[in-house]
Structure formats: structure tokens, C-alpha cells
Design a binder for these strands. Structure first.
Length: 196
DNA sequence: CCAACGATGGTCT
DNA sequence: GACCATCGTTGGC
């Protein structure tokens, strides 16, 4: 079952936690690829200098200010993409970065996209999962309930029990705002980008 | 195991 | 011209 509009329009920190265990799937050439979200980070509009929206709207970050439930994708280090779920209220400029998935669907396709055969190396980082799922700036601004790129609830696929334990840590790969505990992970999950 | 570093290009000052 | 919400490789233990 798809994530509902109401489930998406909640405070960003809460959404970052509740997205854990949900499924991110992309239909490419009629084939479904993707997996279960195991690691996220919240980026806030207030008191968060690491957030792209911290200094207001620019060409790059404008979709961060759009409706919750849309996709925000940007290019990082000239070669990778990062995928976010726009959150909070329209106009606020907040989002949840999806940092890792447990690969579930279309493993062979994802191996091909990533040029590796190691399952643990397919989606264990924001750049990796975007590459595995063929997410690029073409998906920037699409609706995650209606486009080929979608979010499904935890109970949608019977791959694991839906009860999970969440833990948190400081965020990864940033300088400013690095002391804030806004990274959330499924406890003891082998598919995260780095242990807590 | 791990720290260091280069690739690579869009965005912002 | 500097800075990046990264990753793969390299070279040291």
C-alpha cells in the first residue's frame, strides 16, 4: 500500500524515523527495483546550517520548498545523486535524505547499475542507492505517490516483520551542524552506510 | 583494518 | 575560486 498524504505531512524529524522500514521502489522499463529504507537523515529549516534551504530558496533547492511527498534530487561532487523526501509543510524547506536501503527488488538490475555483485554494496549510501535505482535529476520534483518512483508502507511486502528498533546518531559527511543527532537507523542492520 | 586522496561538475560568493 | 548531505582506489599497517 502506498504511503498516504497524511503520513507524509508530519514534522521532518518524525518522518525521518517513520520512513525506516518503508519501501522505496522505482519502475524502470517495466521492472521494479528497490528496497527497504534502513537509514535516513533529517534536514531542518531552522538552526540547521547543513540544510540546503538554510539560506533561503535558490535554483538548486527550490523543490525542497514544495509539497511534502515530492522527491528532491540533486547532484553531489559532480558525479553522484542524492535522493530526499520533501517534508514538513509546503514552503518550509525541509527534507529527509534517504541514506541506505536493504536491497529487495530487482537485484540483478541493481548489480548491473552499480557494477558490482556484492549485495551489501548496492544501496549502502546515498550516492549508491541513487545509482542502483537509476535515480537522477529527472526524478527531481516528482510525486512519490504517483510517479514511477514510489514509497510504500512497511506492511506492503511480506519480507520481514514490521516491528523494528530505531536508533540515532550524528549526521554523516557534513561540517556545519555535524553535532546534531538527526541521523536515524534500524538497529543492527547490516545494510546501513556505516554503523551507529 | 584504515586514512588519505582524486574524480568531477554544478552552485554560490 | 571554493565548496560540496560521495565513492572507489590506493597504500600503509
Amino acid at each position: 500500500m502506498l504511503i498516504t498524504k497524511d503520513e507524509l505531512e508530519i514534522p521532518t524529524k518524525r518522518l525521518a524515523k517513520s520512513l525506516l522500514g518503508c519501501f522505496l521502489v522505482h519502475t524502470v522499463n517495466g521492472q521494479l527495483i528497490g528496497g527497504r529504507i534502513v537509514e535516513t537523515e533529517a534536514y531542518l529549516s531552522k538552526n540547521d546550517p547543513a540544510c540546503h534551504a538554510h539560506k533561503g530558496m535558490t535554483k538548486r533547492n527550490e523543490t525542497m520548498f514544495s509539497r511534502p511527498g515530492l522527491s528532491y534530487v540533486y547532484l553531489i561532487y559532480g558525479m553522484y545523486h542524492c535522493f530526499n523526501v520533501v517534508s514538513a509543510k509546503e514552503g518550509q524547506g525541509e527534507a529527509v535524505l534517504i541514506r541506505a536501503l536493504e536491497p529487495v527488488f530487482g537485484l540483478e538490475e541493481m548489480k548491473h547499475n552499480r557494477n558490482t555483485v556484492k549485495i551489501a554494496n548496492l544501496c549502502s549510501g546515498p550516492g549508491k542507492l541513487a545509482q542502483a535505482l537509476a535515480i537522477t535529476k529527472e526524478q527531481n520534483g516528482v510525486c512519490l505517490r504517483k510517479s514511477q518512483l514510489r514509497l510504500h508502507r512497511r506492511e506492503s511486502f511480506k519480507t520481514k516483520p514490521s516491528r523494528i528498533k530505531v536508533c540515532s546518531s550524528t549526521r554523516i559527511g557534513i561540517n556545519q551542524g555535524s553535532e546534531l543527532a538527526l541521523r536515524f537507523l534500524i538497529e543492527k542492520n547490516p545494510f546501513v552506510s556505516k554503523p551507529a
